[in-house]
């Protein structure tokens, strides 16, 4: 089951980033995450329905700035507040979650999705996610993007 979840979520992330931010990604090494954690961000979204759980993602600050810039159609240097990169990461996760749930559970299951939350990614938290066998990383234009889907029931 977990392999299928990870295949679905990774495919969803790749497609979402391409369509939302014109960013292309491939599978990466999750051990690279700690090397790129410079003031990085962690975002989480919870979902409730036929299954309940959450999705956590961790990205470096430079990747978050690039994400925000690409979505907004401006240069990364023009991202003038941390709030913009945080908002971009949260909204990206929101879209990923909604699309993942439809891809994995089908179009006839009703889910309630929480408002995404975002905070600085602590090294201990990132390490915990990296050590989780179910987590994986994508490489997005040279930046690792760590993902963990947890299903409670």
């Amino acid at each position: 089951m977990n392999k299928q979840i990870n295949e679905t979520i990774s495919s969803t992330i790749m497609t979402t980033l391409e369509n939302l931010a014109f960013m292309f990604s491939d599978y990466g090494n999750k051990n690279d995450v700690l090397d790129h954690l410079d003031n990085g961000l962690m975002a989480q979204i919870d979902f409730y329905g036929i299954s309940s759980g959450n999705i956590k993602i961790i990205a470096s600050r430079s990747l978050c700035n690039l994400l925000a810039a690409n979505i907004l159609g401006i240069e990364p240097e023009e991202i003038d507040s941390e709030k913009k990169s945080e908002d971009a990461l949260k909204e990206t996760l929101n879209i990923i979650c909604g699309r993942f749930l439809t891809e994995y559970y089908g179009e006839n299951e009703i889910f309630t999705i929480s408002t995404p939350v975002c905070c600085l990614a602590a090294k201990e938290t990132a390490t915990g996610i990296i050590e989780n066998d179910q987590s994986f990383a994508l490489n997005i234009e040279g930046n690792p993007f760590l993902t963990l889907v947890s299903i409670n029931k």
Partner: peptide, 9 residues
Amino acid sequence: VSTEGCKIR
């Protein structure tokens, strides 16, 4: 304009 994909909703 949403990420919602559930046909019922």
